[in-house]
Each structure stands twice: as structure tokens, then as C-alpha cells.
Write a protein that binds this DNA or RNA. Structure first.
Lengths: 216, 216
DNA sequence: TCGACTTTGTGCGTGCGTTCACAAGGGCTT
DNA sequence: AAGCCCTTGTGAACGCACGCACAAAGTCGA
């Protein structure tokens, strides 16, 4: 389930506060979901709660981490070290969750060779060798839109089966490969949509289009 | 619908290629969705297709833009100009879609006063004035986790009703406010989950936990 | 030891989104 | 002008996820 990471983060916060036990009601509130939904989610992992008491925080952290595969380390490659790639490279939330930044690749000669977060940026020509040598299992694509599909194809050819794509394109991959997409522009557009509805829905109709195309 | 921006982007690509007309089948393939779903989505906007022919690309671009509220300009404030905030400030996909970067705010004295993308970073103490003066309707939060909720509260108090949150916390807001969350760490965790399932599911059970806690 | 209280785990009804399949409708050819 | 063919728009079935509400179960106090 896609909600497990949210629960996990809430549990980490509770653990840091020294809280030992938590009820489904409390945890659900912290995670921003319905308590019945949370209990059903957790029950799919097994019966880890104690009736009348709740869930033991540390134990639940471990169980969810194991379910998510965070008890083992995953080697991640960042491809494209522009503004966004650098932000990702410096993002602390990765290393603390079992993700190891293992390689950085870029096509720009001005960027290749630079050291970011203790890693040297390699040229993308070495992609195949770097991915194989570093045992990369997850690739993060922060490249320009036109480069995304070609780079994706090369990465997949190396055996990578998980891709996090920040480029605003729909990637085509074999069935065995998982792709998750983060599109910053789309998020803003969805907000604009709701914002507009609050303001009273789309203004103008056919007339407006004709004016926009032909002039008034 | 959350898919409209995807359709819109696909249509822009088609328009750039000089394509005048597109069938639901083709557009659906370009957007990576089922053709029936696409037709149903579009029919909710009105009957903009021609049976036997398809949809006129330019006309559809306009209709979707209008539905999404992209025919008017939205003023966006970026709060937090760390690595991620800078990446967002420099992201070209915003300006080209009717979003205007109107203000930048940060708490770090080393960052305040800096010019990024033609805008001067203001101190967060001026948040209320800047948001009011610039007519901000959408706020982008790229601040550290502990700062997110307080900043969010201040922004909401200024009348902003759309927030794009990059901080890894669950924001509490009044009902009238829309919040969209982008959590980079969660995306990676979901990929790790699927990656692990491909590799044969979670390894080890109870024994592993006891070892992790108590030592072997 | 027993009873009352608390909290988990889950069966069931509901509502939404997806998809198939087809009828309605417009263009193109003859 | 008429018929064929293509594509849209949509009715209906399916499946899934959500949430209510309750029984099972375990704890705590007397």
C-alpha cells in the first residue's frame, strides 16, 4: 500500500518523542487517515496490535520497514544534476531510510567531474558501466524532457526495474519495470483547477475562444 | 480531474508537430491511459469531438486550459529557497502554463536579498505583506519539516487557499484550503516496496526482528 | 477471580472509478 | 444523394476501496 510510508514517518516522530504504544485512533490522526482504514492496512501485514492497548511503536516500525523493504539498503543513481537533481542529491530524507546515493550522472561537461554530496558526477556515456558496477536498483531521472525516454531505455537495458521520473513525459517501459512519476507542473495545475472552482467555475465560453483565436 | 494536465501536455506536443486532429485512441496512447476513460473525461467538459474524425487539437487545448483555469494567470509564492526551492524557482514548466513566480521568501539571512530568476528573496517576516501585495493565490512550501505547519498557518491566515507542500509532514488546514503534497522520500519507498516484491517478498520474520533488537 | 472498559480486527453495505461494448452520428466515396 | 465506415459518447456491469459498526479479545481495577 502507498500509505505505509506515511504511517512509518508518523511512527518515527512518535518514537523520537519516546512514545512506546499508540492506538489506531492516534496514529490515524497523525497520518491524516481514517482509523478503520489504518487498522485494515496494518492487519494486512499481520496481527501486530494488542486489543485494549494499541500497537507497540518500535515493533510496528520494524514490521512496516520490513514490508517496504527498507531493512536492506537500496543503491540509487541520480541522472541529471541540474537544479532538481542537486536538490534530490542533498535531500536528507533518503539516506535515513535505507537509500544510498551510489552514483550521479550528467551529460553536461560543465557538471561532469563536480563533487556533490561526496560523490563525483560521471559522464552519462559511462551509464552502463556505472549502473552495473554500483549495483544500482533504482534510477532517478531528473533530465530534460527530450532526454528522458532515451536515458530510460538505456537504464532499463542495464536491468534496472524501478524508475522515479521527474521529466514531464510519459515513459514507455516493459511490464516488469515500475515507473513513478512526479510532475511539479501538474500539481500546480490541479491546484489552479480547484482554486478556480472556488472562484465560481470557468468564466466565459465559446465567445472567449473565438476572441482568443481571431481577435475581438 | 487530475488527468487533464496530462492530456494537455500531450496535446501541446501534438500541436508543436503541426497535428490538427487527433482521435481518442491516439491521444489516449500518448497520455498513457485507456481510450474510453479519455473520452469519458473529455465528455465531462462538453461534446468537443467530431464523430468519425476525432478532436481538433487547438480547440481541445483551449477547452482544457479553460477548465483548468490556465487562461488566467496565477501568482505563486515560493517559501523556502534551499536546494529544492531553487529548483522549483528555475523550473520552466511553470511560467509556460500561466503560473507567475511572484514572490520568494526565506528565513535564512544568508539567502534573503539574493536574486533568483529575477526576483529578490524577501525575509519571511514580511510574509503577510508580500502575499497580500503580490496577490498570491498559491503558495509553494519548500521549507524544513518543523517550519511547515507554522508557515502554513500564516499563509492560510492571509487568505491563501491553495498550497503545494514539499515538506514531509501532514499539514492541518481549514476545509476551504486545498493542499497537495509531494514527498520525494515516499516515492522512493514505494519503489523499494515493489522492487522487493519482485525479488521474492520480505525476507525473514520474527527471528530477524529479535536479532535486530537484541543482537544475535 | 470476575467484570467492565478499551481497542483491535473484520464483515458488510455503499459509492466511485474503470472498462467493455454498442448505438448514435458525422464524413467520405461513389 | 445514399450507403459505408470510422469515431465519439454513453449505458451497464464489474471491481475495488472506503467507512461504519460490531464482535472478539485482552487489560486493568476491584
Amino acid at each position: 500500500m502507498a500509505r505505509l510510508p506515511v504511517y512509518l514517518r508518523a511512527l518515527h516522530v512518535l518514537a523520537d518523542r519516546g512514545i512506546v504504544t499508540v492506538s489506531s485512533e492516534e496514529l490515524a490522526a497523525a497520518a491524516g487517515v481514517n482509523s478503520a482504514k489504518l487498522r485494515k492496512d496494518l492487519s494486512h501485514l499481520g496481527s501486530y496490535g494488542t486489543r485494549g492497548v494499541g500497537y507497540e511503536v518500535q515493533y510496528l516500525v520494524y514490521q512496516i520497514s520490513r514490508e517496504l523493504g527498507l531493512t536492506q539498503d537500496w543503491s540509487v543513481a541520480i541522472i541529471g544534476l541540474g537544479n532538481l537533481g542537486r536538490a534530490l542529491a542533498g535531500y536528507g530524507g533518503f539516506a535515513s531510510r535505507g537509500f544510498r546515493m551510489a552514483a550521479m550522472l550528467d551529460a553536461d561537461p560543465a557538471i561532469v567531474g563536480e563533487r556533490i554530496n561526496g560523490l563525483t558526477v560521471e559522464h552519462i556515456d559511462k551509464l552502463e558501466r556505472v549502473i552495473t558496477d554500483c549495483g544500482i536498483s533504482i534510477a532517478v531521472l531528473a533530465v530534460p524532457a527530450p532526454a528522458a525516454q532515451p536515458v530510460c531505455d538505456r537504464v532499463v537495458a542495464c536491468g534496472v526495474t524501478s524508475i522515479l521520473n521527474f521529466a514531464p513525459v510519459v515513459l514507455t517501459v516493459p511490464d516488469r519495470v515500475d515507473v513513478r512519476k512526479v510532475d511539479l507542473s501538474i500539481e500546480l495545475q490541479i491546484l489552479a483547477f480547484h482554486e478556480q472552482r472556488k472562484a465560481g467555475g470557468p468564466a466565459g465560453v465559446e465567445q472567449e475562444y473565438l476572441e482568443a483565436v481571431d481577435g475581438p
